[in-house]
C-alpha cells in the first residue's frame, strides 16, 4: 500500500443518510492509468469528487504517503493532485488563454514554468492555441474537454483525476481524447479515469475497478477485465457466450 501514489481504504461517502460510496478500497500506482467503470449512478463521480476533497468522506486515504483527510482541495492541487470534473468547470466568460494561465495558478510566480507548461499544452492540443483568444463558453464540446484537460495539465500534476472525459462527445472525438490521455500516461502523469464508456476506458487503462451501487464488485488488469464475461455482459454490450 505504501508504494502506491494514491490509496483509498474503506472510503465511505454519504449525501445525508444516503450512502453513495460504501467502503471502497483502491490503489493507484505511479505512471499508471487506473479506471473505475460502472453504470450511471454507481457512485463513480461521487468517489472522485470525495477523493479530490470536494465532498466530505470517511475512511483512510493517502496520496504520496500523506494523509488526505486534512488536505483541502487547494492543498491537493499544490501537491500535484488535480481533478477534471464531469462538468469541466471552465471559466466560460474568460478566454481560453486565461483559463490555461489560471491552470498554473499555484505556480504563478514561476514565469518560466508557466511559459513552458503553456507551450507543452499548445503542442499537445494545437486547437487550443488556435482558439486562445476565444471565450471558453463558445468552444465545442470536444474543445471544452481539451481545454479542461489542458488547464489541469498547466500545473504539471503528478496525478490527474478525469471524470467522464467522453461525456457528450462524438465517438471519433472520444477516441482522440482517450488517445491523448494515454499520451499523458506515457509522459509520466498517473491517471484515475472514471468512465461510463467501459470499452473506451478499458482500452487505455492498465488496471480497472468495476463499481456498482457504491461498491467495487470486480477489479483486475484492464485487459483481463475487457475479456471478463461478467464485465462483457453488463458493460460491453452483453456479448456473453
Amino acid at each position: 500500500m505504501s508504494a502506491a501514489l494514491l490509496s483509498l481504504e474503506g472510503v465511505h461517502v454519504a449525501y445525508g443518510k444516503v450512502e453513495a460510496v460504501r467502503g471502497v478500497t483502491l490503489k493507484l500506482d505511479e505512471g499508471q492509468i487506473t479506471t473505475v467503470i460502472g453504470a450511471n449512478g454507481a457512485g463513480k463521480t461521487t468517489l472522485l469528487s470525495a477523493a479530490a476533497g470536494l465532498l466530505p468522506w470517511s475512511g483512510r486515504a493517502q496520496y504520496r504517503g500523506q494523509d488526505l483527510s486534512r488536505m483541502t482541495v487547494e492543498d491537493r492541487v499544490e501537491r500535484g493532485f488535480c481533478l477534471v470534473p464531469e462538468q469541466r468547470a471552465l471559466f466560460g466568460d474568460m478566454p481560453v488563454l486565461d483559463n490555461l494561465l489560471l491552470g498554473a495558478f499555484v505556480r504563478r510566480h514561476d514565469k518560466a514554468f508557466v511559459r513552458k507548461s503553456l507551450d507543452a499544452v499548445f503542442e499537445q492540443f494545437p486547437r487550443l492555441a488556435e482558439r486562445q483568444t476565444q471565450l471558453a463558453q463558445t468552444l465545442s464540446g470536444g474543445e471544452r474537454q481539451m481545454l479542461a484537460i489542458g488547464r489541469a495539465l498547466m500545473s504539471q500534476p503528478r496525478l490527474l483525476l478525469l471524470d467522464e472525459p467522453s461525456l457528450g462527445l462524438a465517438p471519433t472525438i472520444v477516441r482522440d481524447v482517450l488517445k491523448r490521455v494515454r499520451g499523458l500516461r506515457d509522459q509520466g502523469v498517473s491517471i484515475l479515469l472514471v468512465e461510463q464508456n467501459a470499452r473506451a476506458a478499458l482500452d487505455v487503462a492498465d488496471y480497472a475497478y468495476v463499481m456498482d451501487t457504491g461498491e467495487f464488485v470486480l477489479e483486475g488488469a484492464a485487459t483481463d477485465m475487457a475479456n471478463d464475461e461478467r464485465v462483457m455482459a453488463t458493460y460491453l454490450g452483453g456479448r456473453i457466450e
Binding site: Q87, L102, G103
Partner: peptide, 23 residues
C-alpha cells in the same frame, strides 16, 4: 493581473477556481 483573473475565475466558477488551487 493573475490575481485579478483569479478573482474573476472565482466569480465565474467557484468549483473550477478551487480545482486550480485558488482558495
Amino acid at each position: 493581473s493573475i490575481t485579478g483573473k483569479a478573482l474573476r475565475a472565482t466569480a465565474s466558477n467557484r468549483v473550477g477556481a478551487r480545482l486550480m488551487g485558488i482558495r
